[in-house]
Structure formats: structure tokens, C-alpha cells
Design a protein around this nucleic acid. Structure first.
Lengths: 124, 124
DNA sequence: TCATATAGGGATAAATTTATCCCTATCAAA
DNA sequence: TTTGATAGGGATAAATTTATCCCTATATGA
């Protein structure tokens, strides 16, 4: 496990939400769990770009932050199901607002992001 | 300048907003600019934990993504002012929702974040 | 019998982001 | 005259995050 060498800033609400949402796949994990995908293997299939290892780790962090809960069925092969806690559910409207903004500006954002990848050079 | 070796996922609105907001200080920069802090030096003083170098870089990315605009006064010593574009302003309600969620759960979040730093071991 | 699915995590490499330090140029104030 | 403020960015180091590969264990289906 990696151990931080610098302390995070926690001066305001934005810092706090950042601490629990910062992570490449966390928002998407919450989103898909909210949509009803429960098992780790399902979530991995929904997020093919992510490595299995990191999804597991980020699910664990979400669990430590009490945004998701976990049911372990004592069967073989193993079966686990995640669900949103009430705390996690309270975050859904916020994530929804973020997704809506992105959807509303979909085309413009795609252009901007594409152009910023070649250093803003529009001649490429 | 660092050049990406992997392409970002841009499958939905959440990915898109993530692309423009992901960055340690970007949300805070937008927030403070919205509050009326315009000059880079002011912003640096408002965010003492950040290195000057990175704030400059992230302001430039926000500019490339058309969330902020920039006025350069041809004076010496240099003077520059940033402002939110209409596009950037449209993001303020979203950031506000994030900050509100964090503020509403301030105490709980601080506890959770503190505990997750020592591997969830409550005996430390 | 052998590959596959299942969940988790250790060890290590690679990618990415952020920090540190340095240089430019000029005016104002100590 | 020396210091500091101002904005920007190059070069490089450090920190952090993510990816890759491997191992555990067992039941099922080809």
C-alpha cells in the first residue's frame, strides 16, 4: 500500500468531496452501482478501460468512505455485491448534475479536448 | 510538456466534465476566479499549498478549455487578469452543488478521511 | 483433465501529475 | 544598489496513481 508523504488540504467542502471522489474510476463506479450493477465482475465489464486491480482498490476506498456497502456471500466461486449506502445515494444528484453539464456541452467539449491534446495547435 | 501515452475515455458526460475538471487545483481556481480574484498572484496567495508552476499550467488548461479568459496588460511589471467565460460560468452551479454536499457532510467526511489514512485502523 | 469464472491482493513497472529550482525583464521602494 | 513583486515557462526530481503480472481456491462445463 502506498503511504502519502504530504497531507491533503481539507479547508472547505470542495476539498472534502474531492477526497472521496478523486480517483480515475470512482465516479463511474458509483454511477454504475446506482444503475444496478452490483458484482465486481459486472462493473469490470462496464468499465473495460480500467484494470481489475485498480477497480478493486477504488471500490475498497469507496467502502472505507461509507459511500458503498458490500455483501459477501460465503460461496465458491466467490460472490460479492456492492450497493450504495444512504450516504452514497446522497451523492447521486451531484454526480447527476456533473453528467448533465457534460452531456449538455458534449460536442463543444469533445472539440476542446481534442484540440488541447496537440498543444492547442489547430493546424495538425 | 508531457505527452499522453494513453487516450482518455470520452464515452459520456461524466468523462467529458472529468477531462476539464481533473487537476488538483482546477476547481478551486474556477471558484476563486468566480469570487473575484483575478490576478495569478492573488490566486497563488489564495491557494498557498500549490506550487506557482502548476497553478500557471492549470490556468492555461482552463483557458484552452475556454472556461476562463485572460487579459494581458502590456505593462511592466507584468499584469494579467483572468475571468470566467460564459461557458465557465455555466459550471459554477455544478461546482456549487459539489461544495454544498461537502459542507453538509463536513464533520462525517473529516472523520472518514482521517480514518482512511491509517488503513482504517481505528486504534492508532 | 483443462480452461474459465470468481474476488482479492502482493510485488513491481509504467504512466501521469505535481513540486522544486532556475532564468527572463523592469519598475518601485528600502 | 539591492530586494521584491510581477507572469511565464524549461529542466528535472519527487510524489502519486494506475497498469501488469502472478498466486490463492473451487466448482462447472467442454
Amino acid at each position: 500500500m502506498y503511504e502519502r508523504k504530504t497531507l491533503p488540504n481539507l479547508s472547505c467542502g470542495l476539498d472534502l468531496i474531492g477526497e472521496v471522489l478523486y480517483g480515475k474510476w470512482k465516479i463511474r463506479l458509483l454511477w454504475f452501482i446506482n444503475e444496478g450493477y452490483k458484482r465486481p465482475s459486472e462493473l469490470q465489464r462496464k468499465i473495460p478501460g480500467a484494470s481489475r486491480r485498480v477497480l478493486t482498490a477504488q471500490l475498497k476506498e469507496l467502502e472505507n468512505h461509507e459511500l458503498v456497502g458490500k455483501v459477501i456471500y460465503p460461496v465458491v466461486p466467490p460472490k460479492v455485491e456492492y450497493y450504495l449506502t444512504d450516504f452514497g445515494k446522497s451523492l447521486i444528484p451531484v454526480i447527476d448534475a456533473m453528467g448533465q453539464w457534460g452531456d449538455q456541452h458534449d460536442e463543444r467539449l469533445r472539440t476542446l479536448i481534442r484540440n488541447s491534446h496537440d498543444g492547442g495547435n489547430r493546424n495538425l
